[in-house]
Simulated assay, not measured.
Amino acid sequence: MKISRFAQLGAVAAVASLALAGCASNEGGASSGGSSEAPAGASSLTGTLVGGGASSQEVAVQAWTQGLQTANPDLTIDYDPSGSGTGRESFQAGAVQFAGSDRAFKVDEITAGPFDGCADGSDLVELPTYISPIAVVFNLEGIDSLNLDATTLAKIFAGQITTWNDPAIAALNSGVSLPATAITPVHRSDKSGTTGNFTDYLGKTAPDVWTAGSVEEWPALGGEAAQGTSGVISAVEGGQGTIGYADASRAGNLGTVAIQVGSDFVSYSPEAAAAIVDASPEEEGRAATDIAIKLDRTSTEAGVYPIVLVSYLIGCAEYKDAATAELVKGFFTYAASEEGQDAAASAAGSAPISDTLREQVTTAIEAIK
């Protein structure tokens, strides 16, 4: 992980931000989410914080909400898992105070602005606090797992491979008795960061087949459409021969695909998801508080899972309303803390961020005002 652009913030800020992350219970002083010197259970955050966006991190947000509200009983956090695109639009319009998104705002989107809840001239705070593999899930009687390479997977979702016993699938799954069942690909009907990440993988690894590139709205390639993560999972569960993509926390008992990386097939796991993030650089040309990861989908390093979702918490570096800034800062602090990351991992199966990334994230949080 590249951290050179954060060095300019100085060792003092880094130490302060690490102390901020340690205050997981947000007790005591309000401006930073709390002081560990306050009595246990003391309430410091009060009011209502409203967010919305990525359904992928809904379970993690619920875990963060529960942990923070337990320590701050006068705090209410409302999060609408309306999808990444809706979340970003609502945040930009000032309809929510923070957004969850399966991608960061693009630089030209930030430049175009405006962001109604932010003070004039404010940078954005974009924090990669939720890291999870995107599972390719299927429902095929008697089969729990399959191996697929990028080209075959792209052909399935492009409608070029239409039955499960197709020779391309069979060649990758020696010894598996594949039926002649028709394949029904299921995709998101809504604008989705999960779709953006999934199609980014297809476009980077099988560009001759998947010509639509990285898109958050599914192109007109057939298949079945479903609303949100829950809708995709329900459609795959309710069919036979269905295949879809969703945050791995929602895979449940469905069959799952191991993806070819180099000469190996890698199953999704939090560890494999964290490995691809740590092996990828950050995007350039962004503010110090804007930590956007440029995922290397084509990596052949051992043990990495390339279909990964990095979901962001997004806020203002400076809010028009100081009380809003206090609540956002407290919530972001808990989400990035070791306690908050462990709570999300336990609830959602996500990969806790590394200590190096936590230092960057908490330094960015310290800048919120």
Rank of each mutant, 00 (worst) to 15 (best):
S17T: 11
P207T: 13
G196C: 00
S189Y: 02
I110D: 11
V209H: 08
E338L: 13
V257S: 04
L9C: 10
V209W: 02
F331D: 07
A288P: 00
C23H: 12
A246K: 03
F138Y: 03
E237W: 06
G121M: 10
L221N: 10
L357W: 05
P179E: 05
L148N: 00
R5W: 02
A220Q: 04
A60K: 01
C316T: 06
A317E: 15
L202D: 01
A21S: 13
T324W: 04
K204T: 15
T162D: 09
A212C: 02
I368A: 06
K191T: 09
K329W: 01
G33Y: 04
A21R: 00
A347D: 12
S25A: 12
P306M: 09
A42G: 10
S122C: 07
S35H: 05
V96T: 07
D278R: 13
G340S: 11
R286G: 09
I291M: 08
G159K: 05
G47N: 08
G340W: 01
G238N: 12
V261T: 00
E283G: 06
W64E: 01
N253T: 13
S174T: 14
L309F: 06
S36E: 11
S177D: 15
Q8N: 11
A168H: 05
I276T: 05
Q92L: 11
A119R: 06
S44M: 10
T333F: 04
G83S: 02
S55D: 15
I353R: 05
T163N: 10
E109S: 11
T162P: 04
P306D: 10
T229A: 15
V186W: 08
S31F: 11
S192F: 07
L20G: 06
T211C: 11
T70E: 13
A24G: 15
V61I: 15
T48D: 06
P207Q: 08
I291P: 00
L254R: 05
G303R: 03
L127E: 04
A344C: 09
I365R: 05
T163P: 00
V261H: 06
A7E: 14
T211L: 10
F138G: 06
S350R: 03
M1S: 11
Y305M: 07
A272M: 05
E109Y: 04
D355R: 03
T48R: 12
K329C: 06
R358A: 15
V310T: 01
V107E: 13
L309K: 00
A30K: 08
S267C: 08
A19I: 07
A150M: 00
A292V: 11
G83A: 13
A95Q: 11
A273K: 04
P270Q: 03
E283K: 14
P352E: 10
F265H: 07
D123V: 03
Y319R: 00
